[in-house]
Each structure stands twice: as C-alpha cells, then as structure tokens.
Amino acid sequence: MQDDLEALEDRIARLRRSVRAAMRRRDSARVKELRAELRRVERAWDELADALERDERQQPSAPEPARPPGPLVPAREHVHQVLTLLGVPAAPKLIGAVHRAFFPGELPASRLASLRRDEERSFRSSPGARPYYLCPALTSDLLAPARGLVTVSSWPLEHRIIGPLSPRVDFLRAAVAVADAAQRGLHETPDTERLLRSFAVSIPGATPRGTGPIDPGLLTRAAEAEIAVHLDADRQARAAAADRARRRLDETERLFGTKLRAIPGKTAQG
C-alpha cells in the first residue's frame, strides 16, 4: 500500500509539472483538464492514506507507529502531529518551532498559510470525509475564527475555544507538553534546547540558577504551578462559550467559526 501511495505521489508531481507547462503555453483548456485529473489523483491519495491510517490504528499490538518519513508526509499531517504533541491551539510559528525540535522533515511556513482555507473548502465539499480537519480556534466572545491559531477538529469544543486567559493557559500547557516530549527523548535535535528555553524564560521559576541547560522537570513544575492559578477562570469561560456554540452554531460553524457580516446601514462611518 505504501508503494501505491508513492506511485500516486509521483503521478501528482508529474501532473503538477504538466499543469505548469500548459499554463506557460496559455492552453487553458488543457490546464482545466489536467487540474481535474490532478484533483482526482489527490483524492485517491487521500483515501488511500486514510485507509492506511485506519489499518494502523486497528493493529493495537503493533509497536509505536513508525515516524513517517519526513518529505512524503503532507503538511497537514505534520501539523496534526505537532498539534497532537502540544494538545493546545497553536500559532504557525510555534508549530514550526516544535516541528523543527522534534520531527524530521521540512514544514514550509508557506504551506501553513494556505492550509486553513484548503481544510475549510475540503470540509464544505464533503463534510466528514477525512478523519480530522485542521481548523481555527474560536474566540470565546464572538465564536469567530481566532487569528492565527490552529486546532484539530476532533478535539473537544472547549479546547478549541480561546477565552481571555486561554492564550496564557495554552502557552503553559504547551510548555508542559514540550518538556514531557523532551524527557521522553523524542527525536531530539539541537532545536529542542532552544525551544525549551524559549518557554522557560517566560515562565516564573522555570529557568535553573546559573547558566546550565533547561531542566524539563523544573519547567513542567513551574508551568503547572501557574496553570493552577488560571485554570478555574479559564475553564469557566471556555465552557460557557462552548455551551453557546453548541446551542447556536451548526456543525460547520462549530469547526470554522461564524463570520461576522456588516449590517447594511450600520457600516463603518468616517
């Protein structure tokens, strides 16, 4: 099955080259034809990849699923991996940094930018066809997409909503998750220490005395101590917003947020 995937990937690459060539020739009919074909092959790839994933999940005896080789994994899976490690909504920058610190392969920043739009389009065209979607976090007040924060659709709604204290709580939780991954010795790279330090310097009591390396245990304890301070207030705000979202929003809006439209006659003046 892996071989089939690779064959499809080769075909996708070839098709993309042909599309570009046709675009250069300004042969729009051919471009249209090739792109339709490209979409068909990409869909076939998705289905195959999903099937593979399902198979792997159904083999509980199998050891840790092998880390997928870097370059062949599409960006959305990279992002999914990182978000699963972090367990909280994260900005593209943090996703990139965590990816560099713990995972092989490249995750180009440009891919992250187009991801959100692609995911929403894919969901709208065939809802629920994929096991998960990458979607924006929702703001607690307007239930609108929060700028630049990515989450996974399979997470509980409460985790995907951002209240006033959530950026801080999620930052601390991410610190705990990263410290934990470092302690497990998950594919450490030179970037790991840098990432740990970037968390530790912004959390009171998380940096060791002197100039030694960051102690993940200390980082975890410091972050958890501060989480305890904010947790109740944050949980309340998120739960209240999630309730509201369940009552008022449809399935798509619960994932991708409501769009606020200007009411005619009340548009901006001045």
């Binding site: 703001t139 307007l142 609108a144 997409p145 006033p164 204290l165 950026p167 801080r168 439209r261 200007a262």
Partner: peptide
C-alpha cells in the same frame, strides 16, 4: 493578571 484580548479584528471584520 494574564488575560490577553486581541482586538485587531472583530470576527473576520
């Protein structure tokens, strides 16, 4: 005191 409110947009507006 750690609450953070982004005000650069209202929804997508």
């Amino acid at each position: 005191e750690a609450a953070y409110l982004p005000l650069e947009d209202v929804g997508d507006n």
